[in-house]
Amino acid sequence: MDVNIIYNVEHEMPLGVPIATYFYLTGLSAGSFIISTLAYGFGMLKFKPLGKIGVVMATCLLIIAPMILLIDLEQPFRFWHLIMYLRITSPITWGTFLLSLYPMNCMVYGYFMFKGDLKRTKIFGLIGIPLALLVHGYTGFILALGKARVLWNTAIMPPIFLVSAMVSGLAMMILVVIIKDFIIQRGKEPNRDLIYALGKFLVASIVLDLILIGIDLSVLLTSTTEAYRAALMLLSGQFSFLFVGVELLLGAIVPLFLFLSPFTRRWVPAYALASVLVMVGIFAMRCIMVIGGLSIPLS
């Protein structure tokens, strides 16, 4: 039937690119922390050169990220209400504590690492892993518990966020190693083994990420009408360029090809290009989730 909307009110979109950036930065931080603990927590000595860089990056990113949250508040000077009047059912409250505990743990872990106290480094590294997972898992919960938005309100949102955090963190670490070994310390013998090992992890994470996105999409497509329309918005609607073009093609398929094809799998510039593409793709994913989820009409 012909239906035309004559008059309706839509309020301004509440969250936007700052929140997507915040999700992106926490993801990078959690990813680089976990890579840092590979050597010092789990004893994978291959990754030892990444331990110190990883923890410094994780701490710095996690100091910038909550600043973006504060700026995005309408009343930034009331931030202390988050601790004074907390409501435990809100995922933002969980975030308040996680975002304070996690950087503190990062600093302690980094302090012992730079001091050379390997035993305590290991302890704080192992404490930090659940914290890093929670810090990023809770951002998935923020979206998953916003039940008005059909694109967010799925149980798979926290795992997708965790896996994409690993993807972006590994890509950033590859870039860090390349910049450190090939540009800053040009005379030194570059650490190719490390880059190839990180590449393998990255391939596995991208594949897992693609599987989770596939699960999410197939459930959306067969669920309620609203969910079906949200899935169509991603596949053929207003976000199809960002989703299919940037997130899936540039951010996952092209990097997978670069990592796996026999011509480029041992060529470091291809790794650099693939890592940049992966990082762009994950940022696009965060923007699609936040802005795309909010652009579905409610009234």
Binding site: V9, E10, H11, E12, P14, L15, D72, L73, E74, Q75, P76, R78, F79, H81, L82, Y85, S90, I92, I142, L145, G146, K147, A148, R149, L294, L298, S299
Partner: peptide, 20 residues
Amino acid sequence: HRCIGCKYCLASCPYNARYI
């Protein structure tokens, strides 16, 4: 006087009832 303006309630309201 207590609201900090995090806008999470706007995002979770299914009726588009809230505004800044």
